[in-house]
Amino acid sequence: MASQGTKRSYEQMETDGERQNATEIRASVGKMIDGIGRFYIQMCTELKLSDYEGRLIQNSLTIERMVLSAFDERRNKYLEEHPSAGKDPKKTGGPIYKRVDRKWMRELVLYDKEEIRRIWRQANNGDDATAGLTHMMIWHSNLNDTTYQRTRALVRTGMDPRMCSLMQGSTLPRRSGAAGAAVKGVGTMVMELIRMIKRGINDRNFWRGENGRKTRSAYERMCNILKGKFQTAAQRAMMDQVRESRNPGNAEIEDLIFLARSALILRGSVAHKSCLPACVYGPAVASGYDFEKEGYSLVGIDPFKLLQNSQVYSLIRPNENPAHKSQLVWMACNSAAFEDLRVLSFIRGTKVSPRGKLSTRGVQIASNENMDAMESSTLELRSRYWAIRTRSGGNTNQQRASAGQISVQPAFSVQRNLPFDKPTIMAAFTGNTEGRTSDMRAEIIRMMEGAKPEEMSFQGRGVFELSDERAANPIVPSFDMSNEGSYFFGDNAEEYDN
């Protein structure tokens, strides 16, 4: 993207840094990872977990959730003011799984939030270390993106479920800051804005008074975040219109849905970061690795190297396929839920299948599930090659597409044709070009129609051997075009429920 120079890199967003050079960025990201790792080690000690239990991804998720809940100030305040039966607002906890007599047992633990905050700050040299908290939120978000298709949420806001490739980060909490905003897809931002506008339509006082002023500035800020994701002048001009509207209503909703559809071809720039579970960072720190000293990046080879040398386990339900569970977590670790499966298959070195073909449910185990038949197995999170994460949407291309997802959002900077089903997408653009945004709409449609099938995206960008740390010898991959490109292809993934 041309304006790259004016933006802070995501590592800076990730670490609240002012302008830093590459070495400083690597050190501050490393410091953040160190903090998460030290916190995780301490929690495993508190909970008396064995090494194996500490490497269980379900335990990692519970521990991450506990610290996120302990620092969720708004919710904590709300819980104190609106006490609900049987919930102690000062405590947080969740299921911890232990191996007892050759069987997995679930144990519900409860801790004072104050105590968890103390352990977290102690692991982070006394700081609140917001960057580390956001990092864990993005890992949870990436896992949700890989596990669930947001059909219901899309339909509720009037969008087409086939636009799911635009929904990265749709389950990120509001408090995820600049680093969170960077990884949100165009569809996620559109959905947040539509929800806001709908509230304004239904509630006369939404934009009024002292609160209304705050609401208005939040609305304009979200519009600017979305505008910054678009790469064409016409899309940005249309966002200006939406932002400046005196009284946002149905016309703005129409414009936003139009823009979301246009992003299936004229893709937005959305950041991709490899955020790993805390149970990967903990053992690495415990083994003596100093992330701050060595430096770390979320968008280069580092996460690949770390996963190459990590042992992570997962509980497996009786009829689940461990290899499929591994694929789910591998995609989440690489922030690749909406990437082209052919690119992923090449990088991973084994075939990556669409969601609907995987015999696996989510990673988390519900409290009512029976533990008797639970097994555990090693997650295979290694890769054959590594590639640089991208934040450009890439230019655009036609490809055989599917009944489910009709476009992709690249996660890796790797040369390819970008699949999208042009006739299906263009069919949504018939007729409606009147109104105050008509010239911009016409211009956007013209650009979409001009998108050429034979153009290559990320020209000359390749993948790298894991021994090639400096990215000196790019390998331009070859793809098996007979395979499906979309992950949520004609899909039956479970729906995400809060």
Results as ranks from 00 to 15, higher is better:
residue 103 K to Y: 12
residue 339 E to W: 12
residue 101 D to L: 01
residue 159 M to N: 08
residue 476 V to N: 12
residue 313 Y to V: 05
residue 183 V to Q: 06
residue 316 I to L: 08
residue 165 S to Q: 06
residue 278 A to V: 07
residue 230 F to E: 10
residue 39 F to N: 04
residue 399 Q to G: 15
residue 367 S to E: 04
residue 353 S to C: 02
residue 409 Q to S: 01
residue 107 E to N: 04
residue 265 I to E: 12
residue 33 I to Y: 07
residue 38 R to E: 07
residue 162 R to W: 02
residue 491 D to E: 02
residue 413 S to R: 02
residue 494 E to P: 05
residue 261 R to H: 08
residue 90 K to S: 02
residue 85 A to H: 15
residue 58 Q to M: 06
residue 470 R to F: 11
residue 112 D to Q: 03
residue 429 F to D: 07
residue 446 R to Y: 07
residue 354 P to E: 03
residue 388 I to N: 10
residue 433 T to L: 09
residue 80 E to G: 02
residue 57 I to P: 02
residue 372 D to C: 15
residue 449 E to M: 10
residue 133 L to R: 06
residue 220 E to M: 08
residue 219 Y to G: 08
residue 52 Y to R: 03
residue 371 M to I: 12
residue 355 R to F: 10
residue 324 H to K: 10
residue 341 L to K: 14
residue 361 R to V: 04
residue 291 F to M: 12
residue 449 E to Y: 08
residue 124 N to E: 03
residue 98 K to R: 01
residue 412 F to C: 02
residue 101 D to P: 00
residue 460 G to C: 01
residue 269 S to T: 14
residue 117 R to K: 15
residue 136 M to C: 03
residue 431 G to V: 12
residue 28 S to V: 03
residue 320 E to T: 05
residue 228 G to T: 02
residue 437 T to F: 02
residue 384 R to S: 03
residue 354 P to T: 06
residue 296 Y to P: 06
residue 407 S to I: 01
residue 242 V to R: 06
residue 100 V to Y: 00
residue 491 D to C: 02
residue 270 V to G: 14
residue 92 T to F: 14
residue 179 A to Y: 10
residue 224 N to M: 07
residue 77 K to P: 02
residue 254 E to I: 12
residue 405 Q to G: 10
residue 180 G to N: 13
residue 289 Y to P: 09
residue 390 T to D: 05
residue 299 V to W: 10
residue 454 E to P: 15
residue 87 K to C: 04
residue 452 K to R: 02
residue 470 R to I: 11
residue 15 T to Y: 05
residue 384 R to G: 15
residue 337 A to Q: 11
residue 280 V to D: 12
residue 345 S to C: 12
residue 340 D to G: 12
residue 231 Q to E: 14
residue 142 N to R: 04
residue 435 G to N: 11
residue 126 G to P: 12
residue 460 G to A: 06
residue 180 G to K: 13
residue 459 Q to F: 01
residue 361 R to M: 10
residue 377 S to Y: 05
residue 340 D to N: 04
residue 14 E to K: 05
residue 118 R to H: 05
residue 463 V to M: 03
residue 279 C to G: 12
